[in-house]
């Protein structure tokens, strides 16, 4: 069938183009703003409360000093990212309005902390 044939030929090409765009766009992403660090150790965030600049985008580095995988997540500022044991990740956040924003380790939900934007 003609419709199906052309569509199935186009799909992989479209997929490849999509991935290429995403990677290209990613190389353009640069840390031009403030950079902050958060550490997970013994299933605790340090600092448990991190002051961040309000009204501007910033880069947050999350270091996992524990041996097991964690997932840095926040419903308040919509972020979700795996952090392998002994690794660190970077995540771009904001611009946030002034206020308190909760984040947690989704794989150990009792591990919680806050960003305070001011």
């Amino acid at each position: 069938m003609a419709i199906k044939d052309t569509a199935s030929k186009r799909a992989p090409a479209a997929l490849a183009a999509l991935l290429a765009c995403a990677l290209l766009a990613g190389t353009l992403a640069r840390a031009s703003d403030a950079e902050l660090v958060l550490t997970i150790k013994d299933h605790q965030f340090a600092p448990a409360e991190l002051v961040v600049p309000a009204g501007q985008k910033f880069k947050l580095v999350v270091r996992n000093a524990d041996a097991v995988v964690a997932e840095f997540e926040s419903v308040d500022f919509h972020r979700e990212k795996l952090v392998q044991g002994g690794h660190e990740i970077a995540v771009y956040i904001g611009p946030l309005d002034a206020g308190r924003y909760e984040f947690f380790d989704d794989l150990h939900p009792e591990t919680r902390g806050h960003l305070v934007a001011r």
Binding site: A11, A14, L15, L18, L19, A22, L23, A25, G26, T27, A29, R30, A31, K81, L82, Q84, H87, I89, A90, V91, Y92
Partner: peptide, 25 residues
Amino acid sequence: GEISSLVDGVGQELFNAAILLAAVA
């Protein structure tokens, strides 16, 4: 770990976005 450290540390996000958009397509 390798995916995550790709493209200046945002490989995981780009990977997730790409496969989500593929599913949308």
